Amino acid sequence: MGNHPVSRRALLAGGAALAAGALLPGCKPRLSGVFTSADAHPADYPTVRAVEFMGQLLSKWTDGRLGTKVFAGGQLGSEMDTLEIASFGGLDMTRVYFAPLNAIEPMTLPFCLPFVFDSVAHMRRVVDSELGDTVLASLRRHRLVGLAIYDSGARNFYNNRRTIRSPEDMRGLKLRVPNSDLSVAMINALGANAVPIPYGETYQALAQGVIDGAENNWPSLVSARHFEVIDHLSITEHLLTPEAFVMSEASWLRLDAKDRKLVREAAKQSVPEMRRLWDAEVAEAKQIIAASPIEVTPVDKEPFAALMRPVWDRFITTPEQKAVVEGILSMGGGNTA
């Protein structure tokens, strides 16, 4: 038998099909109206529950004809994997952090800039506006249909080496970041060493000393159990980057106009549900951290933000990107890094 190379894309698609088949025996998702969706977060995470809520709405509105089945906990691969699978039609939907989208679509970069949002309320105003629609629409060039923008909270630095009060305290620290050039540039501009590691591998990397720390939001610090292997948490709120919920264009085109409208409406209604769950998770996570031995340190954000101008200038280069950044800043103040 001759050697026939199998592409990574084909292998990923096959893996998704096998996973779907294993968990949905005898069921062909698209024919039955069950949309398969992926998420790297655990099964009880707000984004997972929001997509399940969306499926419940669809089922209610169509007498069970449409619905969703979420494969949580990274069952179908990393966020980059599921984006790729969805883009060529091997997966109906996926929820991803905005950072991985930067690699394929420059218009997603403004939402990922450090210190571009000044509060959660500011970020929510922006993503709910026409700016959010504009950024989601840019994904269509990549065979993805943007359905909703979820929260990812305010991200803070944490580590098991020392207290971070200023950028000087970050020098030499090995910090995990998502697989994103922008995230790497931000960490390096602050004097630390960026180490791109998949989200699911961060706990082990912290526990084994492969990295000194990471940065993430309050719920992730608890749900991923990172709080068990770190000693210091600094409230920098350097990023309020949101998360995207997208649908494969191939799956979208299989729907008639009526069903497309239902999918969009259900996704839209899942956003306030996600935020309700998210806000409760943040409050609970803060209580858990407060009861732990972790040192929590408020910091002055300005010295950190002042180092971000070269990062902004490096990644925001087109008139379209600059217009989005200007729109963001006009809607809530923001930081003019």
Rank of each mutant, 00 (worst) to 15 (best):
K60S: 15
M170D: 09
D151V: 04
E105M: 04
H41W: 04
I230K: 00
R275K: 11
D128K: 15
P110A: 04
S87P: 06
L101P: 04
R49N: 13
S270A: 13
H122F: 06
K301P: 12
L144H: 05
H142Q: 15
D181S: 14
A224W: 03
F227M: 07
Y150G: 02
K28R: 11
G21R: 15
G172A: 14
G172P: 12
F227E: 03
D44V: 09
A280W: 02
W312N: 00
E237C: 04
D256K: 12
V296E: 10
A86L: 07
I316C: 08
F53W: 12
S7N: 08
G200H: 09
K268A: 12
H4I: 15
S180P: 04
D279H: 07
V325W: 00
S152W: 00
T202F: 09
Y45E: 12
D63R: 15
R162F: 10
T202H: 08
R143S: 13
A50F: 09
P272R: 12
T108E: 00
V126A: 09
R49W: 08
T336H: 13
G21H: 10
R30C: 02
D118N: 13
R161L: 14
V271H: 02
S138Y: 01
S59V: 14
A257V: 11
L255K: 09
N217L: 07
L233F: 08
A86F: 04
V48L: 09
K60C: 14
Y45G: 02
D44N: 12
K174Q: 15
R309E: 13
E105A: 01
V210W: 06
G209W: 14
P110H: 03
R309W: 05
L307I: 10
G132A: 08
W278D: 01
S234I: 01
E237L: 04
T317D: 05
G55C: 14
T317Y: 04
S129H: 03
K268V: 02
G146I: 05
F35N: 00
H238Q: 10
Q208W: 05
A16G: 05
P319A: 09
A50D: 04
A20E: 01
T108I: 00
T236A: 06
P114D: 08
K174S: 13
F88P: 02
R225H: 12
A137N: 12
T108L: 00
L57W: 10
I187L: 11
E281C: 07
L206H: 02
E52T: 11
P110V: 03
V120Y: 03
T202K: 12
N156G: 06
P25N: 14
Q269I: 01
A99E: 10
A103W: 01
M54E: 14
W252P: 05
E237W: 01
I211W: 00
R254C: 11
N217E: 15
D92C: 11
P46M: 06
G327K: 03
F245Y: 09
S223G: 01
S223D: 09
S37K: 02
G132Y: 02
V34K: 13
R260P: 08
G332T: 08
R162G: 04
R65I: 07
T47Y: 05
L221V: 08
R162C: 12
W61S: 10
R165V: 05
G89Q: 12
V6I: 13
K258M: 07
P114G: 06
I85W: 04
D231F: 00
G26N: 14
V271D: 05
G21Y: 06
N217H: 10
R276S: 09
M274S: 04
M274H: 15
G327R: 01
